[in-house]
């Protein structure tokens, strides 16, 4: 009897990359529904456009490098990048915003470095940073949440699709009248013009912790994050250290001067802190690989996010914080290695 010769181990592997990526998308689903419920269909349109652009770019790059295209498209990594990008783009955005974001993420940040597993920086954040710096105007077309009485009907699904394609809204709605700054923007403008925090937060957009629609979306993101944590897709080190850094800093400065620094819960449930902690910073390829390294990596992102939000020029610094800490990952990997069994140091 002849048998095949294969090296040990022979046991079946327990997981695979597509399975991991699928779980990430399941975890994002509830937050997407809340986003649609509060801010209209914009995010779904962006997600579809971004995913199409991302997969197209990936297929093109792999064909150019004469690599097998099919397995790479099915492993879902480009899709996850595109969906995360869609979360960061305002719902009302012309079609070329998600396209440029997705293409620059997949081509610039991922395939120039050699494809999956080689990218030094988080592709979604590179895409978002490119968009934020190149198209500052288009990146502020955020929409008011449902339920905030602002004297005009919310933007329907067809209207946002029309805007995405043609860049114009039906006559009844004017772009500036419709769009509304995010709670974080309002807090920034208010504080710079010396209003106290209380006055700023009395506005219609605020309610709950992070702003009317946003606290729902963010809490569902947290639910998705905990799902990933319990499924073992991500480890606790990065989310906990990042959120702890934000909360501690916010609490400290809030107690120092309550009128000029927002509260910890506001920082936690507004902007992209939770999305960043559970989905963006934990991207395994661009994050640190040792547990101690992850703690430092997460804390670093938390500190930078708080610094940029409080003193920086941009309303929400999650993208820049992640990119900056991605740059320190090779150093973290080298200097935070655990002690090996049987070795003194």
């Amino acid at each position: 009897m002849r048998f095949e010769l294969k090296p040990p181990p022979h046991a079946l592997p327990t997981t695979s990359v597509p399975k991991v990526m699928r779980h990430v998308i399941y975890a994002l689903a509830p937050a997407a529904f809340a986003h649609v419920w509060f801010f209209g269909w914009g995010i779904c349109i962006n997600a579809l456009i971004a995913t199409a652009a991302a997969l197209g770019a990936e297929a093109l790059m792999l064909r150019v490098r004469s690599r097998p295209v099919k397995p790479a498209l099915l492993d879902g990594t480009a899709t996850v990048t595109a969906v995360l990008l869609a979360f960061a783009i305002p719902p009302l955005a012309p079609w070329w915003v998600p396209v440029i974001g997705a293409v620059s993420a997949i081509v610039l940040a991922k395939h120039l470095y050699g494809g999956l597993g080689s990218n030094l920086f988080n592709p979604a954040m590179v895409g978002y940073a490119v968009l934020l710096i190149s198209f500052p105007v288009e990146m502020t077309y955020w929409l008011p949440p449902r339920g905030a009485e602002l004297g005009h009907s919310p933007v329907g699904a067809w209207d946002s699709l029309r805007f995405a394609v043609t860049g114009s809204l039906p006559q009844a709605l004017a772009v500036d009248a419709v769009t509304q700054a995010t709670p974080l923007d309002l807090v920034r403008e208010g504080l710079t013009s010396m209003q106290t925090l209380a006055e700023v937060q009395a506005g219609p957009l605020f309610g709950g912790m992070g702003g009317r629609g946003w606290d729902w979306v963010n809490s569902l993101i947290a639910v998705g994050g905990l799902y990933l944590l319990f499924r073992g897709i991500i480890r606790w080190h990065i989310p906990v250290s990042m959120l702890a850094a934000i909360v501690v800093l916010a609490a400290v400065f809030h107690t120092i001067d309550a009128s000029r620094f927002a509260s910890a819960s506001f920082h936690l449930f507004s902007g992209a802190s939770l999305l960043g902690a559970f989905f963006i910073a934990t991207d395994p390829v661009s994050a640190a690989t040792t547990n101690r390294g992850r703690l430092i990596y997460g804390a670093g992102i938390g500190i930078l996010v708080y610094a940029i939000r409080t003193w920086g020029g941009y309303p929400d610094g999650v993208a820049f914080a992640v990119l900056l800490m991605n740059a320190t990952v090779p150093l973290l990997d080298r200097y935070t290695r655990p002690r090996i069994y049987g070795r003194p140091r």
Partner: peptide, 8 residues
């Protein structure tokens, strides 16, 4: 990309 990050 590093200078992109330093934009923050």
């Amino acid at each position: 990309i590093l200078s992109l990050a330093f934009f923050g």
